[in-house]
Design a protein around this nucleic acid. Structure first.
Lengths: 224, 224
DNA sequence: GTCCCGCGTTAGGAATCCGTGAGGATTCCC
DNA sequence: GGGAATCCTCACGGATTCCTAACGCGGGAC
């Protein structure tokens, strides 16, 4: 669990870093807005703790910038307790807002709450479509009607996970190749192959797919 | 969006109910812990706003009971601001903790934040015009009235994206050719062709376009 | 009013992309 | 060392998409 900690007050930064580290979190620190955004891009943290009162890029701008490409939970700390500031930060995409002074225990509890909420799939850990139930955490896919489980090879599983990660979204071949076979993969010969495998195992009628759709010339789309 | 509101203070209960209703939420009220749990089971609310200081079943017990079978977001309000109480509520499964006094705006903003985080569909921003809804992130265009999705070819999609990028602005043919077919393209034969395709698929009456307008001798304009 | 250029529309061939099958290479387990 | 499973390469038919060319129509300039 990696946490990005952004605060311009070096004392607070240091204290929080020690506290978080003591609870087993890996901490990446930033002391101004621009650095925070840069670290968010580079380090892919699982959560962000952000002080609003920073020089350079303001905290609000950091929220906006990060929300442009990430859905990671953002916990805001601020010295200001007026309602308008809270509303603005939350509506820009922050997940929680704590006013100073606050106790370390409270911060930790709020981090746990956010982690719990965003860690596993929100409503049910299983993704359902048609007669299929896919449990991403347990790496198990089973037929709902009779409970029989279906065997997937590692590559098939990676491809399925990549598709299920963005239901309804179109994924280009480049994106899928990147997710499944690693960056720099260009050949799309085997993508078609494994898509056919997935359909054979998961579609009610593999010759007329309804969940794993292909968009000619663009990519593939998973439709629950 | 249905909200279960649990508070023993009838004044606050009434005030919050009016406020939430004014913002379009459907409100189910309960004035003690046992009733709150019962209502949670019966009404299947999408979110719960819970006052900790209730007679009968305590707020903490309500959290525990509800968390036994539901993952609905729980927002706790409380008169007590001590850290231990917050930690306990959050660790029992609450998602947020607000101390009295608080403003209605803050509560609403926190509800929106929770809704956004737990909403099954992280609704990406869509461009709306006429009966059409274009989701740029998902690469999907669908009819609002019946939800049916419309198939676009890659070139059609690129052209649509180029037009939607500057709503209301005039785009010269040179600009569109640059965006869609790459720099250095000069022939305008196929631009007319694909514009006609777009209109056929997206305009209510393709022969009398209202959203994809032609400016004779200049270029094209997208009008939402 | 007439001419000319620009725009909308249609049709058809060329190029590209996708689905599928067979077969060889590699890895893993027994 | 043998066998099975998995992964990748290659080739082919079918479907979709892209582009070229040609024909009317209408608006604007003179």
């Amino acid at each position: 669990m990696k946490i990005l900690l952004a605060d311009d007050d070096v004392q607070i930064l240091r204290a929080l870093k020690i506290t978080l580290a003591a609870y087993g979190y890996e901490v990446v620190a930033a002391s101004d807005g621009a650095a925070a955004v840069r670290r968010a891009v580079d380090c892919h943290p699982d959560l962000m703790v952000l002080d609003l009162g920073m020089p350079g890029l303001s905290g609000m701008e950091v929220i906006e910038a990060v929300r442009g490409w990430s859905t990671m939970p953002i916990l805001v700390i601020s010295g200001r307790s007026d309602s308008a500031e809270k509303v603005r930060a939350l509506d820009l995409g922050a997940d929680d807002y704590v006013t100073k002074p606050f106790s370390a225990e409270e911060l930790l509890a709020r981090i746990r709450a956010l982690k719990r909420r965003t860690g596993s799939a929100p409503d049910s850990p299983a993704v359902l479509f048609g007669d299929m139930s896919v449990d991403l955490a347990a790496r198990r896919v089973s037929r709902i009607s009779d409970g029989s489980s279906i065997r997937l090879t590692p590559t098939e599983w990676h491809l399925l996970a990549a598709l299920l990660r963005s239901p309804g979204h179109l994924l280009t071949q480049a994106q899928l190749l990147n997710d499944v076979w690693g960056p720099g993969t260009t050949d799309s010969g085997y993508l078609r192959l494994y898509m056919a495998q997935l359909r054979r195992k998961l579609e009610p009628d593999p010759s007329h797919p309804v969940h794993f759709l292909t968009e000619h010339g663009m990519g593939y789309r998973f439709q629950p």
